[in-house]
Design a protein around this nucleic acid. Structure first.
Lengths: 208, 208
DNA sequence: TTTGATCTCCCTTAAAAAGGGGATTTTTAG
DNA sequence: CTAAAAATCCCCTTTTTAAGGGAGATCAAA
């Protein structure tokens, strides 16, 4: 790297914010470290200072990290955005990359993983830290949840509300068989064997 | 306080660990700060050093924070245990207090809240940090969903993972009938008629 | 125009869950 | 110690899902 980096950390958890700051302070290629607790003040900072890298929590209040990433990327395409989350959720990774993000770390990431991620994205790579151990270089798509059709989504929503197939059939004015088919397809697409895991997967992946 | 405190922080997320360390370093009444990534090494530390306060994450791998609290409290009843979690789960608070814990903070807690909590527990109080603002001195419960038992929660989690009653019975080493009963009670408590709405209600209310 | 995707419908069989009852033994808390 | 609560187990029946197969109609895009 030619010069030291200015970095912005966005997280609504003060503890995490402090932790990242502390870790970043140890890295010799970091110049200024800015911090923000939510998206609005994060935007102010990127507009005011010459930020090179933004590390943002995904689960922010009001405007989430993905949205923040999108906004920053739209205004400052040269800023490298790294997402951060407690858990590694493939959905988040996918959405973040689509929003212009370049890296992803979890709060389980070690200091050296964080360092590698920052260095990597500055070199133009896309780095998903939990894949570092396996030397893998992304190769998305790992398309969040499965692609479901309009009709399947309707059926899914009604299932989640607790409707039986018969009730769904009546509400959608189709036969029981049809609902059954949609249901089978949903199970297949989500790669699950029963309603319980269908609903939890669907909710986790944000389809519901 | 008469003397400075020796403190142990237990968390499996390096970032959080760093953050807490950094925050604690700012407090003038802290002497030694120890850290551990999981319960086993935490136990070694409390046995080796004269620890006054343990701040432990609830969601630890292998042995969780509640269990760790129980173990520490059994061996060293004078150590003040403070639980820490990402979200404020009334269940965790209750269980931690029962396990001998004296305080509870979330990763949303501010530096001053953390400081107040530590001071408070050293003075013999039970401090739940998110209640500090309201000047309230415990008196849980609250909670949006129904009150479910430990066992019911286990069953619920396994249902959400997609296990059938038979599989759950095998995993929990109980009979199919037992699982069936728990399941029936869950449906009754959540006031639903089937698995689909059980899972969606449970997830929405944060029980899952 | 042909292909592909979606939506629709049907069959069968087996497995799982829901709904109703009741009963015993641990645990826990007062 | 003694109740209450939780956890365990069993019976029964009916309803609902799941898994396997196949198939026609429609509509949009290549």
């Amino acid at each position: 790297m030619l010069r030291k980096l200015n970095i912005l950390v966005v997280d609504d958890h003060p503890v995490v914010l402090e932790g990242m700051l502390n870790i970043l302070k140890q890295l010799d290629f970091i110049a200024e470290i800015h911090k923000a607790g939510e998206a609005i003040s994060a935007m102010s900072i990127v507009r005011k200072f010459a930020i090179d890298v933004v590390i943002t929590d995904i689960n922010l209040p009001e405007i989430n990290g993905i949205e923040l990433g999108r906004k920053i990327h739209a205004e400052f395409p040269n800023i490298n955005i790294i997402g951060m989350s407690t858990f590694h959720d493939p959905l988040y990774v996918g959405e973040l990359i689509q929003a212009g993000g370049k890296g992803f770390i979890t709060k389980n990431s070690t200091v050296s993983e964080i360092e590698s991620t920052i260095r990597g994205v500055m070199e133009g790579q896309v780095i998903i830290s939990h894949l570092l151990n396996n030397q893998k270089q992304v190769s998305f798509p790992d398309s969040q949840g499965p692609i479901i059709t309009r009709r399947e989504k309707e059926v899914l929503a009604l299932i989640a509300e607790g409707c039986t197939n018969k009730e769904i059939a009546e509400k959608l004015f189709v036969s029981l068989s049809t609902v059954d088919s949609h249901r089978k397809n949903l199970l297949a697409k989500f790669e699950v064997m029963n309603t319980a895991s269908l609903i939890s997967k669907a909710m986790k992946s944000g389809v519901l």
